[in-house]
């Protein structure tokens, strides 16, 4: 592992956040940049933020749809870390200067009541280890200019995480047929997308099982109390200053977010 490169690439992405301007893809700077190196760049960034006082609140799973996997030429999802400074209150405002080119996705969030440690975690284990599921909006964002990402770019960039909003009401996962939970996503009161739980690898709980097993490779365990965003139920929708988004999920209620006007 080239520690110098890992640090340099973490610095490269940090500059984008600091300056508020997207940067050159890492895979352009180094065509040999690998997925495992990319995860180490992500871990480096998270380690720094934790040192600065941020707290890890959970994980997010990305690239869970066939369409996204095809787009990036991959056959499995990726994941990123959730931190306490990424939380937006339900129906709260997200200042636009905190994002670069945000997109919004509706998801099902899992709150774990027990640790989930790979490598043999099944969907059944996930259901039994879950306290509640609830509806979530994820605001994905890319520190790479114009979302010109390959798999390694988004992995290094914390799976293009931005912010997340939890809402609705918590429900035991056993009380729902997760693959068939319907979803409607609205932008400024206009329907923009519909979806269903099965959009995330056939079952959102299977995505969480994938994550637990993937993390085993990196020596990480999903902890009780963590929030897991299990993957988008429809394509991400671009957000502009002043846009208001909300989503409704069958049996789970609704969750919303408002983007602030851009300060000039």
């Amino acid at each position: 592992m080239d520690i110098e490169k890992i640090t340099r690439f973490a610095d490269h992405l940090a500059a984008a956040s600091r300056e508020g301007v997207g940067v050159t893809p890492l895979t352009l700077l180094d065509p040999q940049f690998s997925e495992i190196e990319a995860y180490h760049v992500q871990l480096k960034t998270i380690e720094r933020k934790v040192k600065e006082g941020a707290r890890i609140t959970g994980k997010k799973i990305g690239l869970t749809s066939r369409a996204m996997q095809t787009l990036l030429g991959v056959e499995q999802p990726d994941y990123g870390h959730l931190l306490d400074d990424m939380v937006v209150e339900n129906n709260g405002e997200l200042p636009f200067e905190h994002v670069l080119s945000p997109k919004v996705e509706a998801e099902i969030a899992f709150l774990l009541k027990r640790d989930l440690e790979g490598p043999h975690v099944t969907t059944y284990d996930v259901l039994m280890a879950t306290e509640y599921v609830m509806p979530a909006l994820e605001i994905v964002d890319s520190r790479i200019a114009n979302w010109q990402i390959k798999l390694e770019d988004t992995v290094a960039d914390n799976a293009s995480s931005g912010f997340y909003v939890l809402g609705g009401h918590p429900v035991k996962p056993q009380d729902l047929d997760l693959p068939l939970v319907g979803m409607a996503l609205y932008k400024n009161q206009q329907l923009v997308n519909t979806g269903v739980g099965a959009a995330a690898l056939g079952n959102p709980a299977s995505c969480v099982a994938w994550l637990a097993n993937k993390l085993y490779e990196l020596g990480i365990t999903l902890k009780a109390g963590e929030i897991i965003l299990s993957g988008a139920l429809s394509a991400a929708v671009e957000a502009k200053p002043g846009d208001v988004f909300h989503t409704q999920l069958a049996g789970l209620g609704s969750v919303g977010v408002r983007f602030g006007e851009k300060k000039t």
Binding site: V181, M183, A184, G195, V196, G251
Partner: peptide
Amino acid sequence: LEIDLVGVTLSINGELKDLGAGAAVLG
């Protein structure tokens, strides 16, 4: 039921072909 939030999956020969929720029909 929440009719607009009824999720639907459509598979052909075991492959998920399409999906959506009731709201896709005029909201």
